[in-house]
């Protein structure tokens, strides 16, 4: 354990040196290769212990100490968190490339693309052309993205959704501890400040990933429970995503379907008839703006995707219409008008 903690400290020190120190002038290909080797070890530590609370806490404490001393020694030092260990190689690379002292020979190795001139560095296979490959990969994504439109949520959200599922599964562990997963989702939501709609899309993508194991099913269950406990995100999800995508989710997940129908009914009950416009409109502008037509479309898409739902929903709407007095005159009951809109 002691050795592990010492290594965690050394990893943080390496990142600090790479970004801020003039000592880099002395670096050669061998040093570069060793640095990346060490960074990979840091990533390994993260993967190995991120879901082990005891070790993780110890490592977090160790990092606090190391940060303190590094802050004192290096002006402008940025703290390294336990989570940062997962992206050690990236942080190392960012530090190196932004360090004006980085020897140009090192840059040549990193950007080498296997041309004859680079063969002299071929002993450092792991780092030769590292940046070149990263750039190729990012560029290839850009080249293909206009074509890869067959996914309902987009390739990027699909990947993020799958990663979310993986992470939730790991957090819950064998004991299926929902609490930790929910706590993690809360923290993600906080971090997504300003990009909440994107987060909703990723949640949808996570719910659409194939359930290959019981653990994944359990993770999707937790995700649905969390949505119900976080009405803001649920409402945003229902208004931001397309009707067909939501209907697809409703078809796959019972809990989501119930929550979704609940949101649709809330939208309807929040509407009042505007004589001026001759149409049902949302009363409170605080919630998202949903038109009567959009509401109808959501119900129709749901019926189309899950035909068995039609009877149940219509029965409920009829009951609500009854409670409104069961008039068949337009503009008196939102339920009555909704039913007639759904059946024309």
């Amino acid at each position: 354990m002691e050795t592990l903690l010492k290594n965690v400290s050394s990893t943080a020190e390496l990142l600090a040196v790479s970004a801020r120190s003039g000592a880099l002038e002395q670096w050669d290909g061998h040093a570069l290769s060793r640095a990346f080797h060490w960074a990979r070890y840091g990533e390994h530590l993260f993967r190995r212990f991120h879901s082990d609370p005891a070790v993780r806490t110890a490592m977090e404490k160790q990092l606090q100490l190391t940060n303190q001393s590094l802050r004192a020694a290096l002006p402008g030092y940025t703290d390294v968190s336990f989570c940062d260990l997962s992206r050690c190689q990236h942080l190392l690379l960012v530090g190196l490339l932004n360090n004006p002292e980085l020897p140009v020979s090192i840059m040549r190795i990193l950007f080498g693309s296997g041309s004859p001139a680079d063969t002299e560095h071929s002993e450092y296979v792991d780092v030769t052309g590292l940046c070149s490959h990263i750039i190729q990969c990012k560029s290839a994504c850009k080249v293909l993205s206009p074509l890869a439109d067959s996914s309902a949520v987009g390739a990027d959200a699909e990947v993020q959704g799958a990663m979310l599922m993986e992470r939730l599964g790991a957090l819950m562990g064998r004991g299926r501890e929902a609490r930790r997963a929910e706590h993690f989702l809360d923290s993600l939501l906080q971090g997504c400040d300003g990009a909440s709609e994107h987060f909703c899309l990723v949640i949808a993508a996570a719910l659409l990933t194939a359930k290959n194991s019981a653990a994944e099913g359990a993770a999707q269950d937790v995700l649905q429970d969390w949505l119900q406990k976080t009405p803001g995100v649920l409402k945003l999800t229902c208004s931001a995503l397309s009707a067909s995508l939501l209907a697809g989710l409703a078809k796959e997940h019972r809990k989501f379907r119930e929550a979704y129908c609940g949101v649709l009914k809330t939208w309807a009950s929040d509407m009042e008839y505007s004589v001026h416009e001759g149409e049902w409109v949302q009363t409170s502008t605080k919630t998202c703006t949903v038109t009567f037509q959009k509401l109808t479309e959501h119900f129709l898409a749901l019926f189309e995707t899950c035909p068995t739902q039609r009877d149940d929903v219509e029965r409920e709407l009829n009951a609500l219409k009854l409670s409104d007095g069961d008039f068949d005159v337009r503009g008196l009951s939102v339920w009555g008008d909704l039913l007639s809109a759904l059946n024309t």
Binding site: S86, R87, I134, R167
Partner: peptide, 10 residues
């Protein structure tokens, strides 16, 4: 999103 999930950009 990827940062707290421990997924490096590359």
């Amino acid at each position: 999103l990827m940062k707290p999930m421990g997924v490096p950009p590359n």
